[in-house]
Structure formats: structure tokens, C-alpha cells
Design a protein around this nucleic acid. Structure first.
Length: 255
DNA sequence: ATGGCTTCATAGTGAAGA
């Protein structure tokens, strides 16, 4: 089973890239973030023609999440039940017996911002809710744009970024609190190239210079981590014309 | 250099992203 996550930064703009990527990579599940589309505009027909089904929760301009899968998704959940929120940042569904939780964690903007406090509160609610969700669904994958680089090696210039949003100690503590629920960062279950990142700023020729951060993650509960055989970041779509600033992350499960 | 791009909502610019 191949499952993936990709912040597409507008599904309307990126639909051709998504369709091409599905055709080449044939994942069983692809979680999307920042679709930036109301549900009435979601390109369900194009995806169905490509052999996929989808569940989605979107809004105009910002946010928006979706779970695309070859087989149907059941028991769809929208948002955090313990954190009422207008922003469409979470969708959960069961696919092939695995609970997929697709998240677009708030960015936070800067550590002195109200948006930063909202980010930490959102992450706290996520952790509280996941405690119960993991009891209901022991085979659980938490995929998405976390907007957190968990360690210094996930940052191209950790000195320059020290204390900044995306790398600050409270954000990293929130990430590690998720790991303390038993979730494992699938990327770090395997040897990886140095300077592996999943996001590069559009400015500064950042991609060409590999000035990136690893902020998109696939975390697995213990039963899934045991059968995970690989995790990788695909830089190819970042090289296309009009790319998303994020690259897709893919993990493989057997059994 | 506190910008640099990109998207979206707009019909000039401004917000937001990370």
C-alpha cells in the first residue's frame, strides 16, 4: 500500500500536476492540503476519470483538505470535534482498514502572533483528540503539512532559523508530543539523504539552492510503523513550471 | 535588503503563506 501527502497550494492551479503525479506514482491514497476550493468546485470528475475517488473539505482562498483514494473511503470525519473552527484543516477517513488523518496545521506566521497561539492550541487539541482516535483506530496514519521542522537537520540553516516560527521549541514540543502518543515519523525510520526537505520558498531561488525545510510528514501508529518499508520525498514536481512550493511525501506499507 | 514569489480576492493593492 502506497500512501502520500502533498500540499498543492491551490488544487485549481495544480490539478494537472496532481493528475500527472497520480498517473506516474499510482498511490493508493493521496492526502492534499491547501486545496483553496469550495466543495462545489472540487474536481471530482477529473479524479474519477483518473481512477480515483475523493472526500474533501474546502473553502475559498485558504486551507482546504482532501483524501484521494483508489478504493472508497468510509467513516469520514471533518475537523477536530474538540476544537470548533471555521478553517478547513482536517479530514479523516478509513481506507483499506487504515485510519487516514489528513491535516493542514496552522502556519503560525511568527512566534509573537495570535496565529502562533492558535497554532499551538490547534496542535494541543489535535493531540487530545488523537488519543481517543488511536483507541478506536489502532492502525492510524497522520499525514500532512505540519508546518513544523522537527529537528535542526530538517532546516537548511538552523542557526538563521533558530527560534523562528516552524522551528520554535513549543512547536517542536507539540510535534514530539504526537510522537509520545506512539506515532513514528516514517521518514526517520530509514536512512535518508542529508539535507532532505519538503518545502522551499518561491523566492531567492530557494529550490535551486536547496534552501528548504522538512515540514510535511507521515506519522504512523506502531502497528503501521512495523510494516512500513520506505518513505521518500519526490522533488520532481517542484521542478515543473508553476510548481507548488511543497513536494509530495510517500510511504510504503506491506501486509 | 524584513524583501525576494505565488495565490487569491480584487480591479489598486493587500493579505497570507512558510
Amino acid at each position: 500500500m502506497r500512501i502520500a501527502t502533498w500540499n498543492v497550494n491551490s488544487l485549481k492551479v495544480r490539478l494537472p500536476h496532481v493528475l500527472d503525479w497520480l498517473a506516474v506514482n499510482q498511490p493508493d491514497v493521496l492526502c492534499l492540503q491547501e486545496t483553496k476550493q469550495e466543495d462545489s468546485q472540487f474536481p471530482l470528475v477529473a479524479l474519477q476519470q483518473a481512477g480515483y475517488q475523493a472526500v474533501f473539505s474546502g473553502q475559498k482562498t485558504y486551507n482546504g483538505v482532501a483524501i484521494i483514494s483508489k478504493t472508497g473511503a468510509t467513516d469520514v470525519g471533518y475537523g477536530l470535534p474538540n476544537f470548533p473552527d471555521e478553517q478547513k484543516r482536517l479530514i479523516a477517513a478509513t481506507v483499506l482498514g487504515v485510519r487516514m488523518v489528513c491535516v493542514y496545521v496552522p502556519n503560525g506566521q511568527s512566534v509573537d502572533s495570535d496565529k502562533y497561539r492558535y497554532k499551538l492550541a490547534w496542535l494541543d487539541a489535535l493531540r487530545e483528540w488523537l488519543k481517543e482516535e488511536l483507541v478506536r483506530y489502532p492502525e492510524l496514519a497522520l499525514l500532512g503539512d505540519y508546518n513544523i521542522a522537527p529537528e535542526d537537520r530538517d532546516v537548511y540553516d538552523s542557526q538563521a532559523w533558530a527560534g523562528n516560527v516552524l522551528v520554535s521549541a513549543p512547536e517542536r514540543a507539540a510535534f514530539h508530543a504526537l510522537e509520545q502518543l506512539g506515532l513514528r515519523d516514517s521518514f526517520r525510520l530509514f536512512e535518508q539523504p542529508e539535507k532532505s526537505y519538503s518545502w522551499w520558498d518561491y523566492r531567492m531561488l530557494a529550490f535551486r539552492r536547496n534552501m528548504g525545510l522538512r515540514i510535511d510528514h507521515i506519522l504512523f501508529s506502531a502497528p503501521l510503523a512495523r510494516v512500513c518499508t520506505g518513505c521518500s520525498i519526490d522533488r520532481a514536481p517542484r521542478k515543473l513550471e508553476r510548481p507548488s512550493d511543497h513536494a509530495p511525501v510517500t510511504a510504503e506499507l506491506v501486509g
